[in-house]
Design a protein around this nucleic acid. Sequence first.
DNA 1: TATTGTTATACTCTATAACTATA
DNA 2: TATAGTTATAGAGTATAACAATA
Lengths: 147, 147
Amino acid sequence: MADVLGSALDKVLHLSALVSTDLARFEAEAGLTASRIHLLWVLGLAGPATQRSLAMTLDVSPRNITGLVDGLVASGHVTREPHPHDRRAWVVTPTMLGEQTIRSLREGHADLARQLFGQVPADRLAAFVATLDQTIATFAELVEDPP
Amino acid sequence: MADVLGSALDKVLHLSALVSTDLARFEAEAGLTASRIHLLWVLGLAGPATQRSLAMTLDVSPRNITGLVDGLVASGHVTREPHPHDRRAWVVTPTMLGEQTIRSLREGHADLARQLFGQVPADRLAAFVATLDQTIATFAELVEDPP
DNA sequence: TATTGTTATACTCTATAACTATA
DNA sequence: TATAGTTATAGAGTATAACAATA
């Protein structure tokens, strides 16, 4: 009964943990960490960004971004360019290596999705996604108006 | 097309991230960290355990367990008892506070599952769980026999 | 000789607070 | 006065390697 509900949640978390395992393989191969990969991913989505905007997007302190960008500059994945109109700010831009990493990140993500869900019939997959949507929406309501 | 597949994966990860947010609230309330909560959770599932077995279960170094247990002893959630038959080993056991924390952890988990999935019709939930099972099984095959 | 756990050392992620340079 | 980022400081999680005590 209520067991089915808990089991659904457990399985979502289990799948998510498995995907994290897969990411860990990528981390090892690329010599990066999860946080740095996350930053690169965001750069790939939104393009070059100031550290301030990265701090907001990643929901992390500005000081933390300094450290992450330091690491990515050292490994050659991004550069810090002067901001064209604001001499206080830096613009963080992926290098060619960074762009390449972002591409393989995307490919890995798409491959994994294809492998995981490719065999699921279309109607069942649609229902699956709809249930996820409903659940995510429910969660948003909970956060706004806790019981 | 392939977009649906990626979207399914993204949404699983999104829901998982939301659940982690919820856990963060618990962390703040209980004055604990995610790693220490994870250790307590495992103790709740399997009962008192040696540090060695905790290291294997949590897939973390023995040294790391020393630190986590140090923290949980300091906060009064667990005790280190001498192992009855092996004088090298400690047995980590929840205190009354630890047991109480484990209980509220379980309750919070069950509440969340009920809130998230309670409004989903039974047949749809069953299909959801079946899709998760299939996906998790697919992943296990991938890991054993990478493409 | 193998196992359990700790000390030593080091790196990353994270935060807050104080500060500099610039807007 | 407010904002962008860095320096200073601190704590947690993580790892490997060397070591002690015990099996």
